[in-house]
Design a protein around this nucleic acid. Structure first.
Lengths: 339, 339
DNA sequence: TTGTATGCGTTATCAG
DNA sequence: CTGATAACGCATACAA
């Protein structure tokens, strides 16, 4: 592998120049004659020279690279976020290294390690569900490597963050249901210890309270994020004395499961029961009836995270900032009564 | 950035050792005393030393890294493929650099450039739709960098490839429709110049022919891959003198569009018209009725591509190989007549 | 405008 | 078993 690569020395020799002159010519250094630049660049092209980014980065002390750690690429939300990050950072001359934690703290640590070893200029991360101990993240900060969180954010660490306003997303959805005549609104909730789900629950409760509704525990199904759990939840809810006429779900998947149960049992959506999801997964617009949901703007979140990195890297005495993305309702037939 | 990094020299100085001894100790070199190894590793831990992967790679002439170029991460197929590639290559000690071409030849060339500059040990690629000129890919081979294609494959280049047997996927789907009593089977086809769509069309035609059906051009809608095009196609097909009773679509999205038109116009799926898609997109199982489709096993394709790379890199006089993945039918309600 | 010398942090080679 | 030295390819301070 070693010997068949062309270096600036090869170019220099061929042109009777010094390697440093070649280096400068290739980098468009101001005090190199345009004549020299021309012949150097031409020969470089002819000989198919490619700069060794490794060597260059080593010398410069920076690889112009940002590491992105996400739980999985195979999720619409994270894939879109990556695209947003990439759009901003490419424009600024940075490359991306994408690493997956697979929802494992152990793997997340490994990702951090290799990114630090690769001397990335910064790390943008959405943490795994397992990440409670933050030692590895604090270590990144000790190394003075800019660290930006997005979407899944630990609260007990001082750093730049891009967060979704989950509270408002939930509030708006619940409010929509209330103002469109639904009276008994249930909630399929996520685990309490995860901040974003706690917030969604809080938004749901706040809307009910603000509009003078009672919030009853019996209408809140705990830890209900998957399709299966949603199915079961619908079964539970429809067997209550007073059956709810709407369900606000913390996840599109539990919403989907609930819809399946309802449809199988002849309960009409949204006439009998309305369903509202969260995340605006691609499938929501395709199912029958199309599922109303909360759009999180992952692309925008990615862009914002990248922006925060750029600011932090530019300004030496930068102070951590938090950007809040406001979600939007995507109202579809699953909540529109024909009246 | 430069000065606050700990190097093997720092460790060496602190321990009154030579840098090379430290290096060897950290790399678990056989002829270093276990005593030395212990103290070195301990100090490394204490001082939070991290090896500079850039320097190491430069010196070793390899970064143990493979580049993956795909059109977009935000597609289920490619995201799954990446996971397959990563699973295999991580186990073999390689890292991944993921680059997106955004379906642009220009961007694809840039990706190739930066990957080569990063001195990757190989490139695994699914080419963009625009990629007809292959100069940049041939150049990779000239540089003796292993190049593996998957899914989207140029035919006029000698290299290792992982391909889906599109022909059989289409054949099976069409055959299924035939053997389940459908008589007039239409086809929403992709662009003829793209090999995979040509193959799907060929499979469709072959099945019809094998079973003694006439294959009529009027039932083939050209260049029909999107939801909108599928919608229009359904409109066209249902206005024919003899309306088809089944549609085999080269894409799940055109299938979806067709289903939308049919449902809106009171045509019952699958009683009046059956619909078969291709790709097994996640949404296919959620829509109503669930859409039958062809599973392409992207994760498996990724694994296979990674395997090919490993073989090629191991064996100096390796000869290009092609692995063919056999797709499978996912039969769902969109083709199951209740009879 | 160009050349010289040096170092980025490792590792490989050659001694001892 | 360990040490000294050079080299990977490039970029920069300094000199000319």
């Amino acid at each position: 592998m070693g010997k068949n690569h062309i270096t600036i020395h090869d170019l220099a020799k061929a042109l009777n120049l010094n390697a440093s002159t070649v280096s400068r010519a290739l980098n468009d250094h101001p005090k190199i004659s345009s004549e020299t630049k021309k012949i150097v660049n031409q020969l470089a092209l002819e000989m198919n020279y490619r700069p060794n980014a490794l060597a260059s980065s080593l010398r410069k002390g920076s690889a112009n690279t940002v590491g992105v750690i996400i739980p999985r690429v195979n999720r619409n939300f994270f894939a879109s976020a990556i695209e947003g990050i990439e759009a901003v950072l490419n424009k600024a001359g940075y490359h991306l290294i994408i690493a997956q934690s697979n929802e494992s703290l152990e793997k997340e640590k490994e990702c951090i390690d290799s990114l630090l070893n690769a001397r990335v200029d910064g790390i943008i991360i959405s943490i795994s569900w397992e990440t409670i101990d933050l030692a590895h993240l604090l270590m990144v900060q000790e190394k003075k490597v800019p660290l930006i969180f997005f979407d899944r954010i630990p609260h007990n660490i001082e750093a730049s963050k891009v967060r979704l306003n989950d509270f408002m997303g939930a509030y708006k959805a619940t409010e929509y249901l209330i103002t469109h005549g639904y009276k008994q609104i249930a909630h399929l909730a996520g685990p309490k210890h995860l901040h974003m789900y706690a917030e969604r629950r809080r938004g749901y409760v706040a809307a009910l309270t603000d509009y003078g509704f009672k919030c009853e525990d019996i209408y809140i199904i705990e830890n209900c994020l998957t399709q299966d759990k949603g199915f079961e939840a619908a079964k539970t809810l429809t067997s209550l004395d007073v059956i709810p006429d709407a369900v606000f779900c913390a996840s599109d998947y539990s919403a989907l499961g609930a819809m399946m149960f309802l449809k199988e049992n002849g309960i009409v959506i949204p006439e009998d029961i309305a369903v509202f999801g969260f995340s605006n997964e691609p499938f929501t617009r395709f199912i029958d009836p199309p599922l109303s949901s909360i759009e999180q703007f992952p692309y925008k979140m990615g862009e914002a995270a990248a922006q925060l990195f750029l600011e932090e890297v530019k300004d030496k005495n930068y102070r951590p900032q938090t950007i809040e993305i406001m979600p939007e309702m995507m109202v579809r037939k699953s909540v529109q009564r024909l009246d």
